[in-house]
């Protein structure tokens, strides 16, 4: 199994991850060897094996639908890159 430079560009786009143009071939090579490693699993028969998500097969815990958090917006926004009037600022999305 091997990935091409254009595969890597597509995956990087899905992940919204900037990659230097001259590094793309390098990532293609590394990811291809990772995939080679992973295809070893293909030879094992897993028909009917229940996928394991939690080591103790514990279900997601539920809680009562009540307010448990206090408003800490100002506190949280002290570490934000850019805010105004309690809002997080990003470049304009709609013209």
């Amino acid at each position: 199994m091997s990935l091409s430079a254009s595969d890597v560009k597509k995956i990087a786009h899905l992940a919204r991850l900037g990659i230097d143009e001259q590094q793309i071939e390098h990532y293609a090579k590394d990811l291809s060897s990772m995939l080679d490693l992973m295809t070893q699993m293909g030879q094992t028969n897993t028909d009917g094996v229940v996928p394991m998500a939690h080591p103790l097969d514990q279900m997601q815990r539920l809680r009562d639908d009540v307010v448990s958090e206090t408003d800490q917006r100002d506190h949280f926004q002290t570490i934000a890159p850019q805010t105004e009037a309690g809002l997080y600022l990003v470049p304009k999305v709609i013209d």
Partner: peptide, 20 residues
């Protein structure tokens, strides 16, 4: 660009692998 400039090579490899 924020992600591309701030993550190192190994983190990028695993993000790409996982996304794929």
């Amino acid at each position: 660009r924020s992600r591309g400039e701030a993550f190192g090579a190994e983190v990028k490899r695993r993000i790409l692998m996982g996304t794929y």
